[in-house]
């Protein structure tokens, strides 16, 4: 990309406006757009081991097993399908992240930049599970789902990659950017039963 090309806008630009939407003075939920760099990584046939070794070497990251997510200093990964992961990076590591992943795995894997293909939202707060339950059909109860777990599913009929980031609980919700606005509308509608605050993108 030439240096002068403008950086594409986030799919949630102008949609996820910061503000407090309290119910009875309370806003127990926070909602924040995140803007990491994203790269989809698929191991080529019978090369999953090579891919895992390369990612470990380059990013110090152990690619997670089905239904899990993993994080290291410079990058994190979510299992999305057999021999397939969604990798993300923030800050300095985010620069040409897909290129960095590709150069690490070489011909052992295929990499597709998803930075502008998906939108990422972080939903945190005590009622988060109940909010998600109005549109997500998988069981997020702490007995079966905890920080470090992830799922590829649909929420409110929209494809969603979900990862639990902490026990607050906090959930990262990754949706196709073309449907991000619709998803945001659904999510804030569901959250409005409890009260929420939208924070500036991080």
């Amino acid at each position: 990309m030439p240096a002068s090309a403008p950086e594409p806008l986030s799919a949630l630009h102008g949609v996820a406006a910061p503000g407090r939407h309290a119910v009875g003075g309370e806003a127990p939920l926070t909602l924040r757009e995140r803007r990491p760099s994203l790269a989809m990584l698929l191991a080529r046939k019978a090369r999953a081991r090579d891919v895992a070794a390369a990612v470990q070497r380059r990013f110090g990251l152990a690619l997670p097993a089905p239904g899990r997510a993993a994080a290291a200093q410079d990058a994190s990964a979510i299992w999305t399908q057999p021999d397939g992961w969604l990798l993300s990076a923030d800050g300095a590591a985010a620069r040409d992240f897909a290129g960095a992943v590709k150069s690490a795995v070489g011909d052992a894997g295929s990499v597709v930049d998803q930075t502008h293909g998906k939108a990422v939202l972080l939903l945190t707060g005590a009622p988060a599970r109940r909010v998600l339950a109005t549109g997500c059909r998988i069981d997020l109860h702490p007995r079966v789902f905890a920080p470090g777990r992830s799922a590829v599913t649909q929420i409110a009929h929209i494809d969603c990659i979900l990862r639990q980031v902490d026990a607050a609980p906090g959930y990262e919700l990754i949706v196709p950017s073309s449907l991000a606005e619709a998803f945001y509308g659904w999510l804030t509608h569901a959250a409005s039963a409890y009260g929420y605050e939208v924070l500036a993108p991080a």
Binding site: P66, G67, P82, R137, I138, D139, T153
Partner: peptide
């Protein structure tokens, strides 16, 4: 077998 128990709408 990969993802666990899911509703039929995902399939």
């Amino acid at each position: 077998p990969w993802c666990g128990l899911r509703d039929e709408i995902e399939f």
